[in-house]
């Protein structure tokens, strides 16, 4: 098949799955967090509230598109797009399954770097939205977003660095292959537990999700950087958050949970997709669980935690990993 056509079809498929995943992730989150709080959650639109995302989407599409006075119009309209595009292109390098047919560009040798770069760009959407809205809540939200992401991207990078050192490759396919598909003890979460914990925490901060959702802390900043957004422009920010959630979970699975690996993958490659989906869903549910459990950090504590705990811990982990690899400790060769 024509490689361009093939890439096009796969891209469209990945985008469709990501957007459907976004819609139904909102439903999963609302349902799961309701049960964690002894509530029922959405159950009016369709059976078990399954049509709720559809109803929400229709509502948001038909909302009036308001441009507040004195906003920087170009940046104001650009910001949601800048937020949502990096979230979507994140999926390009993630190996969804064992077969090359289930991958877009997982073989590029800078996969992990690409991920870091795309995540870094993603935050511009929040900053630009906060700046262009001409609203002090939005500005403070954008300010917090930039400070938070600068602090936590370092920890995230160091966690990913440990993984790259272990696999001696930045290609996500190599990282999955290094985790010996088929053997659960090969998963890097068992050999790099500290990196996994740092990655999980910094991923939550990067996503600006509870307990790090200071960017949109309702009680202080109304809706933070998206205060002045409504209708589909608001939906795009929402979409970027949830698509990034799915992307981050997929990265965590790829880096630490053996990617698509699982029993009988060699016999039936389609199974690898199922394993990957199950692992990603488990990570997403844990994120919701964290949101239901932990209160929001105070802002100075958030910065202090990033700089004074996660960064030194990440550095220490990198040094120890390097020493273990050089010393040739079994499992760290």
């Amino acid at each position: 098949m024509n490689p361009i056509l093939e890439a096009l079809i796969k891209s469209v498929a990945v985008l469709a799955v990501a957007l459907a995943g976004f819609a139904y992730m909102t439903w999963v989150e609302r349902k799961f967090i309701s049960r964690l709080q002894a509530r029922i959650g959405p159950n009016r639109a369709g059976p078990f509230g399954l049509l709720q995302p559809v109803a929400d989407g229709i509502k948001l599409i038909f909302k009036e598109s308001i441009t507040p006075a004195n906003v920087d119009v170009l940046v104001y309209f650009l910001a949601p797009i800048v937020a949502v595009v990096p979230a979507l292109v994140l999926f390009a390098v993630i190996p969804f399954g064992s077969d090359p047919a289930f991958q877009l560009a997982s073989n590029i040798n800078v996969g992990a770097l690409y991920v870091m770069a795309v995540l870094g760009v993603g935050i511009y959407g929040m900053i630009l939205a906060g700046w262009s809205s001409n609203n002090k809540y939005a500005l403070l939200g954008g300010l917090r977003a930039s400070a938070q992401v600068i602090s936590y991207e370092l920890g995230l990078g160091l966690a990913v660095l440990s993984v790259i050192m272990m696999a001696s490759s930045a290609s996500l396919n190599d990282i999955v292959a290094y985790q010996q598909p088929g053997n659960i003890l090969g998963w890097l979460i068992f050999r790099q537990p500290i990196a996994a914990v740092i990655f999980a925490i910094t991923a939550l901060a990067e996503l600006a999700r509870a307990p790090f959702d200071l960017v949109e802390a309702e009680q202080e900043l109304t809706a933070g950087f998206m205060t002045e957004y409504g209708g589909m422009k608001f939906a795009l920010f929402y979409m970027s958050e949830y698509v990034k959630m799915i992307g981050m979970s997929a990265l965590f699975v790829t880096f630490f949970l053996g990617g698509w690996s699982g029993p009988f993958v060699n016999e039936a490659p389609a199974l690898s997709l199922v394993y990957f989906a199950i692992k990603v869903l488990a990570c997403l549910l844990v994120m919701v669980w964290v949101r239901a459990t932990l209160p929001r950090f105070r802002y100075d504590k958030l910065m202090g935690f990033g700089w004074k705990v996660l960064l030194p811990l990440g550095l220490l982990n990198v040094v120890v990993t390097a020493l273990l690899i050089v010393a040739g400790v079994p499992g760290y060769k």
Binding site: S34, L36, Q37, R39, T293
Partner: peptide
């Protein structure tokens, strides 16, 4: 302990009145 407490609620009957 906190996480377990929250997860325990998952297995409780919801208190919602429809």
């Amino acid at each position: 302990v906190g996480f377990a407490t929250v997860l325990k609620t998952f297995f409780r009957k919801p208190v919602t009145i429809q």
